[in-house]
Amino acid sequence: MTLRWQAFLEAVQERGEYPTPQEADRAARVVLALLGAHLVGSERAELAARLPETYALILLNPLQAAEPLTPERFIRATAAWIEGATATTAAWDVSAVLSTVADAADDELTERLLLQLPHGYDLLFGRPTPA
Rank of each mutant, 00 (worst) to 15 (best):
E53S: 15
G41S: 07
N61V: 06
V40N: 03
E72G: 10
T100D: 02
A65L: 09
P62R: 01
A49L: 11
V97E: 03
P128I: 04
P128H: 03
D122A: 07
L123I: 11
G84I: 10
V30D: 00
T54N: 01
I82V: 15
V40F: 05
A24I: 14
A65G: 06
A37R: 01
L109F: 11
L59Y: 09
A33P: 00
L35D: 00
P130C: 04
R44K: 15
P68F: 02
A79W: 03
I58E: 01
P68R: 02
P128N: 03
L57W: 10
A33N: 07
E83A: 11
H38V: 03
G36C: 02
A102D: 01
L114H: 09
L34Y: 02
L124N: 03
D93K: 00
T70Y: 06
A33Y: 05
A37C: 04
T129S: 11
L113Q: 03
Q116I: 09
T70L: 13
D103T: 14
R50H: 15
S42T: 14
A28I: 12
V97W: 04
H38S: 02
L51R: 07
D25W: 13
W92R: 15
G84V: 12
L63R: 12
P130T: 02
Q64Y: 07
P128E: 00
R26K: 13
A87F: 13
A66D: 10
L69E: 04
E53C: 08
A45P: 01
L123A: 12
V30N: 00
D122W: 04
P118S: 06
A28Y: 04
A45R: 15
R26F: 05
A91L: 11
V101D: 00
G84Y: 06
P68H: 07
L114M: 09
T86I: 10
S42N: 08
I58A: 03
F74I: 07
L59T: 12
V97T: 09
R112H: 11
P62N: 06
D93M: 01
A45C: 08
E72D: 14
A85W: 02
L124T: 10
